[in-house]
Write a protein that binds this DNA or RNA. Structure first.
Length: 240
DNA sequence: GCGACAG
DNA sequence: ATCTTGTCGC
């Protein structure tokens, strides 16, 4: 897929924040995504060696069937610390390398982390969406900013996530009896449409199948680098 | 000054 | 995120 590699990545927190302020106006939170959606991707990052090495995983599934079609894994020295609000500067560089290896260009990417539900409305999903000019959704397991009422217990129920007068996302009950998910637009998609696709990607567990598969690949310390797809690798344990 | 704080 | 054993519940 077409990727816009930055000339250079910020080195300091101040420079990173300045860049976010500059990019926020470019984010689109109305529906400008492919129709129909045929391929959805899950993006996630993991770490090795005390966090000194970042591992980015991307898995492409068919939609709405959710069958695995392609996947890629990239490893790279970690170049930025984890600072709340600046997560993308730590994970995106490696994520771009994984995306560049894909054979299938996904129509929609589900990212592990916030989209617009961010202090400066530029969570990792927004940042990544701008760099690849694709539709993205932020799917976070916990809250970064914003306040909300309690979420009803039934699957599919949701309440708005508010930051002052702004609706920055939604808190979704993806599965009864579990902690809700924090959903927000990344780029080229509205909150309502984002909730629609997240639910369609979540047939059974708390997390979308895309996220679960990417999670597994990112943390599987035996994953083959530059993997080009499920063929010859069912994701099963195999000693040699 | 005291909490809050994606992954 | 990652470090780690057992334990509770369907």
């Amino acid at each position: 897929m077409q990727i816009h590699y930055p000339d250079a990545w910020p080195t300091t927190a101040a420079a990173a924040i300045a860049l976010q302020q500059q990019l926020r106006s470019q984010v689109i939170t109305t529906d400008r995504l492919p129709d129909p959606i045929r391929h959805v991707a899950g993006v996630d990052a993991g770490f090795e060696q005390n966090g000194s090495i970042t591992r980015a995983a991307v898995v492409v599934l068919s939609f709405p069937d959710l069958q695995p079609l392609d996947q890629a894994l990239a490893r790279r020295p970690t170049s930025f610390p984890y600072i709340p609000g600046l997560l993308s500067f730590r994970e995106v560089p490696t994520v771009l390398e994984a995306l560049a290896q894909l054979t299938i260009t996904p129509d929609l990417l589900l990212c592990d982390g916030q989209g617009t539900a961010h202090p400066r409305r530029l969570g990792i999903a927004c940042h990544l969406g701008l760099l690849v000019d694709a539709a993205t959704i932020g799917v976070a397991k916990s809250r970064l900013v914003g306040h909300h009422r309690q979420v009803p217990p039934e699957k599919g129920a949701w309440v708005p996530l508010l930051d002052g007068d702004d609706t920055i996302g939604a808190v979704l009950r993806s599965r009864p009896g579990t902690k809700p998910l924090y959903i927000s637009p990344g780029h080229r998609i509205s909150l309502e449409t984002a909730l629609h696709y997240v639910l369609q990607c979540t047939p059974k567990y708390r997390l979308p199948e895309t996220t679960r598969r990417a999670d597994r690949l990112a943390s599987d310390r035996k994953g083959a680098q530059g993997s080009k797809g499920p063929e010859g690798d069912n994701g099963q344990l195999r000693l040699w």
